[in-house]
């Protein structure tokens, strides 16, 4: 017993080091699973409010640019609206809408690491829940991963764990959108069969397979395509519409029917 205590005292620094290293490695490896620890993310109260304060100081510097972007978007939406020929007097029944959206601001952006997470200034108090989709006026951005009362962290599409259903516009050929961690303006679209006719410059949009995003949200254009190793599927480089280094105003999309869809899907999984 005496010797054990002596041993511990003699090697206390090394033992403490090993203990702390194991703790941090434990947290890190744990993060490679789908749902990360609730504790370590920038959506918590302390870091959220610090980021929010810092954002409050810097947001004035690019107000002009942001205003231009919003006006641009309004212009696009207006032109869509005028060409729809809907009579203004008709009352739309908003309870029938499948998707609702909430506006928000990004208070922390990140695009240089292999697993990027953004932080937005909306949380459970504003009705944000896990697995809602986040988009900007130009295209998709990511999926809500963690929420606190006033903040939420978003798993960016620039994240090696991100996997989003996408298709080629005006067709029904779909694949999955992943990121290889190399360039912040480029993602990869995998699993498009080789018989599909492709052209450089074709538009890629979100597919109908996921219940997170509505169909036909723009993602990017085809920059380059090659057959993959098995020679039966394309591996497509997609250039994003969004400038991921400069995003501020976002919309969080919620599919009202998602719980129902998920319930059905789990039923199928249970039956098998």
């Amino acid at each position: 017993m005496q010797q054990i205590i002596n041993f511990i005292i003699r090697y206390k620094t090394s033992l403490l080091y090993l203990l702390l290293l194991l703790i941090s490695l434990g947290f890190t490896i744990d993060s490679h699973s789908y749902h990360r620890s609730k504790f370590f993310n920038s959506s918590n109260r302390i870091s959220g409010s610090i980021y929010n304060t810092a954002d409050g100081i810097t947001r004035y510097f690019n107000l002009d640019e942001e205003n231009k972007k919003l006006v641009e978007e309004n212009k696009k939406l207006r032109s869509l609206l005028y060409n729809l020929n809907i009579d203004d007097t008709i009352r739309l029944d908003t309870t029938k809408f499948e998707f609702t959206s909430i506006s928000g601001r990004i208070i922390k952006n990140s695009y240089a690491s292999p697993n990027n997470y953004l932080t937005i200034n909306r949380g459970t108090n504003h009705g944000i829940k896990q697995d809602m989709g986040v988009i900007t006026a130009k295209g998709i951005l990511g999926i809500i991963e963690h929420t606190s009362k006033n903040y939420a962290s978003v798993q960016s599409i620039l994240n090696s764990k991100s996997n989003i259903n996408a298709k080629i516009k005006n067709t029904n050929y779909f694949g999955s959108l992943v990121w290889d961690g190399r360039s912040y303006n480029q993602v990869k679209l995998e699993d498009i069969p080789r018989l599909v006719p492709l052209l450089v410059g074709d538009t890629i949009v979100t597919g109908a397979m996921s219940s997170i995003f509505p169909e036909d949200i723009p993602i990017g254009t085809i920059k380059k395509f090659d057959l993959n190793v098995s020679k039966s599927f394309y591996s497509i480089d997609v250039e994003l519409f969004n400038d991921m280094t400069n995003v501020k105003n976002v919309y969080i999309i919620y599919n009202k029917n998602r719980p129902e869809i998920l319930e059905l899907e789990t039923k199928i999984a249970n039956d098998q």
Binding site: Y17, L20, L25, T28, S42
Partner: peptide
């Protein structure tokens, strides 16, 4: 805590 990197910085600084 701030940068969503889990405990990567902690592992390197402790080392």
């Amino acid at each position: 805590f701030f940068s969503d990197t889990m405990a990567l910085h902690a592992a390197s600084t402790v080392t």
